[in-house]
Amino acid sequence: MEPALVCSAVSKKFKEDAGGRKPGEKWWRGLRPKKKILYAVREVSFEVPRGQIFGILGPNGSGKSTLIRIISTLLIPDNGRVFIFGHDVMEKRLLVRRMINRVSVEAAFFKKLSSYENLIYAARLYDLNAAQARNRSREILERLGFPEKKIYTPMENLSRGLQQKVAVARALLTSPVLLLLDEPTTGLDPKSKRDVQNFILEVQREHDTTIILTTHDMEEAEKLCRRLAIIEDGGFVALDTPANLKDSLASQNGGEATLEDVFFALTGKGWEEAQKDAD
């Protein structure tokens, strides 16, 4: 069977400002700041079969979101190719866009519009009519525990947890065959986090949706993902099932291992240290 997603030797680098103006430096030098090269993704290759939840675990700034943006047709890689159900994401961009949807870490909504207005807008972009959108979004929001009376409240007046539930509903409204979840539970309270996680599992089970999930939450990765890639400095340092990743380290060291131990063994860095490096 054709894999849902194939990433083949994908690399991406960016030019970034090297820093602000130094004290005493002429002001006009700040108009053309010096650039440095940042290697965001390095030679990443993997395949995801249909219907699997595939996790990408890494600290902030490790390249997870860049990889998701490449898969979601928003970034052109410098090298390598990405195929979704056999279609090259750059050559068949429009076709691929109909098959995917994405939940990003930041709530990307028109803040003054209500969740209902935002969902209707999204539905029309994906060729659903207002009635279909209304029914489906109500159904999804109800399953996510979203209070019905808040559907006409402007997004800016909703909590982060509720906003993220609307983001999940928006992505699922279009019935994507490949769902890209970029840190969907970051910043959520424990209950909202559990609601979203359970819903992700439910969607995968009921609709056989392929899900790519990035996270820096090890528990979440273990709970949701069938297979897991650990990413550090833009490159995959390991790829296996969570159980195999832990077992292989445990068998080397004896005793039990956690994903945090695995990360330390592979990168030489503790998880907290890696997060601090990123900040």
Binding site: R69, S72, T73, L74, L94, L95, R97, R98, I100, R102, S104, E106, A107, A108, F109, F110, K111, A122, L125, Y126, D127
Partner: peptide
């Protein structure tokens, strides 16, 4: 400014 640019640009429309 709204933060919706990526969502709109990845929509399957010309």
């Amino acid at each position: 400014w709204e933060g919706t640019i990526e969502y709109t640009f990845m929509a399957p429309i010309r």
